[in-house]
Structures are given as C-alpha cells and as structure tokens.
Design a protein around this nucleic acid. Structure first.
Lengths: 320, 320
DNA sequence: TCAAAAGTGTTATCCTTACACCCATGT
DNA sequence: ACATGGGTGTAAGGATAACACTTTTGA
C-alpha cells in the first residue's frame, strides 16, 4: 500500500516490538518467512509484526497498530508506547521500497499469554526470540569479551586514527575512561552499522558474517529493536514498567533477574531489595515459592496503588 | 497536499517547536495569520511553523523539517530532536482536514540570531512569543495561585465525585499528598482539554474564555508545544541542553535563571552552583559582567570537551 | 554608606555502595 | 550435615537540602 502523491510515493508503516519474558530472558515476537529459519537464519531473516496504516480503517495510529498485531500474530496488546518515527529507510539498499516512513512501537506483555507459534495469516510463522540473538554484545552479565575480542579490533581498524571515530567508539562501548551505558543500544548498533560490521550494512544483503554480530533482520527492523531495548532499559529506572512483564505473583529474586536480564547487567542483591522496599513497589503475599533448591522465597506482587500515589518512581539501577 | 489512497486521504505534516531565550524567558517561534493578533488573539490564533512532507523533495524527515522552517521563517535550525508522532488530530472539530498525521520536532537556538519579525513567504507574520502565554499555569516561580484559584474549582466540578478523575487531577497538579512535577506539561493540558477548560476543546472554536486558560493555538499545536515543554524540562536533567539556548559566555546566575525559567520553578543557589562545579559543566573566562547593579559576576562558558568525556550528565534540579 | 547581587562555609540527612553474615530448606 | 539460595545488619562515602554568612560593586 503506497500513497500516490504525484510522481513519487511513500508508505506509512507501523512496526511493533512486542516484548515478553520467557525463561528469564527478554523475548521479542517475530515473523519468520520461508527460508532456513534455523539457528543461523541467513536468507529468511526475521521481521517485526508490521503493516501499512490505513486511515480509512482506523481512527488513531495506536488502534491501527493493535489491530495489525492481533491480525498478524493473534496476540492482543496491553502496554503500548510509541518509540520513534523513522524516515530514512532508504539508506538500506536491500529493499525495493524507496520511501517508507515507519512508526515504531514498544509493547509489553506478561509471559502467561505469550505462547509460542500461533501463526497468523500473513504468510509467516510467528515466534518468540531471545532479543540477545540479535544483539549478543548487549548482554554483559556473564562475559564482556565480545566487545573486547570481536568488536574493538575491527572498530580500531575502521577508525584508523580518526580522533572523532575513536572518541565515539569509546563512548558507545565504555572503553578507556568511559563506562558502559546500557541504554546506548541504538548508538552502538548505528556505530557498528556505520563501520560495516553488521550484515544489514553490507552490500551482499543479509548474509551473516560472524557469530558475534547477531542475527540480521529485515528492513531496518533491527534498528527499531535497538531503539526499543534502549527505551525499555531507560524507562526501568524511572517508571515501574518491569511489572508489565512479570506474572501476578513473583519472588524478589525473580524480579531482580528480570531486571538484570533486560538491562544486561548484574545488580547488588541487598541494594536492589532495599530499593524495592523503600519505594514500596511490592506487597508481600501469604504463600511462598518452593521451586528451586534452597530456602523458599516469599511471594510478592506489584502494589498497583502505587501508580496513584507516586507517579514517577521506577528502579534506578546501581552497580553490581 | 494530501495523499490519495482509495476513498479517504491523509496528510503527513511536520511541525517545529523552535525555542530560544529572550529576556530570560523561553520563547517559541510562531506564525500569526491575519485577524487581531494582539493581546487576546481570538480569531487569528497562532500556529507553529509546519508543512507537508514531500518525499520527492527530501530524503529524510529532518531535512524536510529544516527546509520547511527556513522557508517559512527564514531561520536556520541548529539542535533538532523528534518529539512524537500524533495521529488523532481528528478529535479537533475545528479543522476541515480529516486525517492528519503530524510529526512534532523540538529545535533549540541561541538568542543572538533570534530576531523578531522576519516574516517568510507563506502568508503570516513570524513572531517570538513567551511560551507561558499559552500555559500560564506552568510558571510556578512567582505564584501558584492560578492552579488553586482558577483551575481546581472547575476541575472539581468536572470530576463531580469520580474517584478516578479526582486522582488524575491530584497527580497532574500536585494537589494533596502529591507534588508538582514540572515535566507533566502534556498530562495537565490533556486533562484540562478533557474537562473542557481550554478553548480548543470547546465547540465554539478558538474563542478564549478566561484569562487564565492561556492563548489558544491552531489545530493541535498547543498539544505539540506542551509535549516540547515537557521534553525539554525532562532533558535538562540528564543532558546539557540548556547550553544550546545560552550565548557563548554567560554568568552562573544567568544560567540558573534560564534553567528556572524553563522548568518554571526556583532553585537553591548554592546547590545549583555546586552541581555545575561538580559536573565541571562550565569553565571560567577572564572577563566579568557588569550589567546589573550589584557585584559583577565572572563569565563562564560551556565546556564543550565535556560532551566527549561524560555523555549523560545534565542538571538534575533539586527543590528551591 | 547602603542596597543589590555575587559568592562561600558548614551541617544534618539521606542515598549509594559494599562488606559480611545468618536463616530455612531439600538432598 | 551441607550445599543452595533467601534474607538481613551495619558502616563508609558521597550527594542533597538548607542554614547563614562574607565580598564586591553601583548609586
């Protein structure tokens, strides 16, 4: 669906990044078309649920987005937030479309209703995928060696002495005097793109070069996902959004691992708990969970009353 | 310029909120068409510089915006940031246009080049206007009585006992146990709109009812301005954006009043200075300013080197 | 000399970071 | 009993909020 204007045309597309936690990792709902959609996923790269805005059918953008996602993935949206409007998809030579304006949205949903498969009508299989599949360098919980071993060397070659490029690389990846800022997901992706280190940036199409550079996505969807990740990581700190991703009742440890998995860093246990308690974010339930080996943890739930009391407190994360 | 799709059409418009400081107050660049554009400004309400996106002429949205603003106001943009994409202008019955998607931008510029008048070609006079003209209740530096005297009574009548409405009013305007959050500019405007207390919400068109409710603007431009104000107020706290609005050299007091004028609140002098010093945001110049009566202040300038050192520190404002 | 504005010292309090340690349960 | 994870006490250092006070100029 293009809009005719005169001699050139453009489409207004809506794209959704739908996030849910599965196995304690943030997952994204994707549509994978044909091809070998296996581990490497070269030809049939995944895409986000998306479609063209038809003003004659929907009064608002958000209504259109909700309709579109439920058609394509048979999944209803709960929390929805607009991310950004991208107007330069044209820089990607892979697509035949010349002008696409796309409005990206972030949506959060609880795990319970987040079953796999499902498959809507529009010629593709819907799947939940760990978001670090597309951004392996963003998970700093176990190791940080991807950056040091795989990213820094080619980045230095690309910078080849340019003070500006070196400074940007340091800022983005927390090298030398600077620190890793988990919110700079987009900046890092764009830098790698500019340096030709992610497959979307290479002429050859979407073929994946290395293991460390992450699975590619169609169009500029990986950029939209990066925007969503950065936004969610940032929002964690000043709005209680994690709870949109948690089940009704959970333990404090589960909450902490969820936050850690989203932010890609580890946190200090006692400080995290003190924060939760001070802000009175949760209330204790009677039961206790005896899922794992050690001492059973007591169950808590999000204090919904909080939204009415103190609007703007989330979890400002500290250091591990 | 509309885009034909089938039976219905829509336009994609770009709108710019261009901000500069004049006389120590944030001002916005507006286009005022015909009518009595005097103090009350009823019929010929102001509008933001805006125009339709033509993909055949501009490769990116931002390029189109820059071109558009310089055409309409003969003013070049420096700092530019996308705000939000609004898709439900249809709720305003005042306009003949049925479907308008508008992408709002925030732009900042230094006072020096911000001369008044200028007047571009597109049938209207460009003027800088104090932004509190449109949002009188947002300036809490001198008095807070607009909210108490003018806003609360009609809001209570509108809420008429609904617990939800009362809670929202408290949250937005910092009543009872809650505190005034200077960033909630949009939320406050939308609440007043919903309660029918701003003229854009009333059937009769743009006629202004009271003095306290602020001057109206065309279309949903006041909503876009509210978004810009909230965003700028928020961004002050974690990015050094004030400096985009300051002249090359300035005094610490001038800097403080600028921040206060933007945020609409007063700050504690020593704490503000300590913050500026600790973050090493400025560097001293040799000269000193002898503009006003008292002791001359020493001049400083923004330490541009900071942008390379520590990316994300702005001024987190405290209480007065 | 006095008012006005610039600029500094000091303190109580809270938040952050980090250490080490105890508790309850399954195997 | 002991490994495993849940849960707590306490203390150093830094940031915040708020006092009051001195200094330098123009009128």
């Amino acid at each position: 669906m293009r809009q005719k204007t005169g001699d050139k045309s453009f489409a207004l597309s809506l794209d959704a990044v739908l996030v849910a936690m599965r196995d304690n990792l943030p997952h994204v709902l994707l549509i994978e078309e044909g091809g070998a959609a296996g581990a490497a996923g070269a030809a049939g790269a995944a895409r986000l649920p998306s479609g063209t805005f038809r003003p004659e059918r929907h009064r608002t953008l958000e209504a259109a987005l909700r309709a579109l996602v439920s058609e394509q993935t048979s999944h209803a949206l709960d929390y929805v937030e607009q991310l950004y409007t991208f107007g330069d998809r044209g820089r990607l030579k892979t697509s035949a479309e010349e002008n696409v304006i796309s409005i990206g949205y972030l949506a959060l949903t609880k795990t319970e209703s987040a079953e796999n498969s499902g498959g809507g009508g529009s010629g593709g299989e819907t799947r939940w995928r760990d978001w670090y599949r597309f951004f392996p360098w963003e998970d700093r919980r176990r190791s940080r060696e991807i950056v040091e071993a795989e990213i820094v060397p080619p980045l230095r070659r690309w910078a080849c002495g340019s003070a500006d490029r070196i400074a940007r690389a340091h800022l983005c990846f927390g090298l030398e005097e600077t620190v890793w800022d988990e919110e700079k997901v987009l900046e890092r992706y764009e830098l790698l793109f500019e340096a030709g280190l992610v497959s979307e940036a290479r002429r050859g199409g979407l073929a994946r070069a290395e293991a460390w550079d992450g699975a590619p996505m169609r169009h500029d969807h990986r950029r939209i996902l990066a925007t969503a990740m950065g936004r969610l990581r940032g929002k964690l700190k000043y709005r209680p959004v994690v709870f949109e991703l948690m089940p009704e009742s959970f333990t404090l440890s589960e909450l902490q691992s969820a936050v850690e998995a989203i932010a890609g860093i580890t946190l200090h246990k006692q400080n995290f708990r003190r924060l939760i308690e001070r802000e009175r974010l949760v209330e204790r339930l009677s039961g206790s969970a005896r899922k794992t080996r050690g001492r059973p943890a007591s169950l808590v739930r999000f204090r919904r009353a909080l939204l009415a009391e103190r609007p703007r407190l989330g979890l400002r994360l500290g250091k591990g």
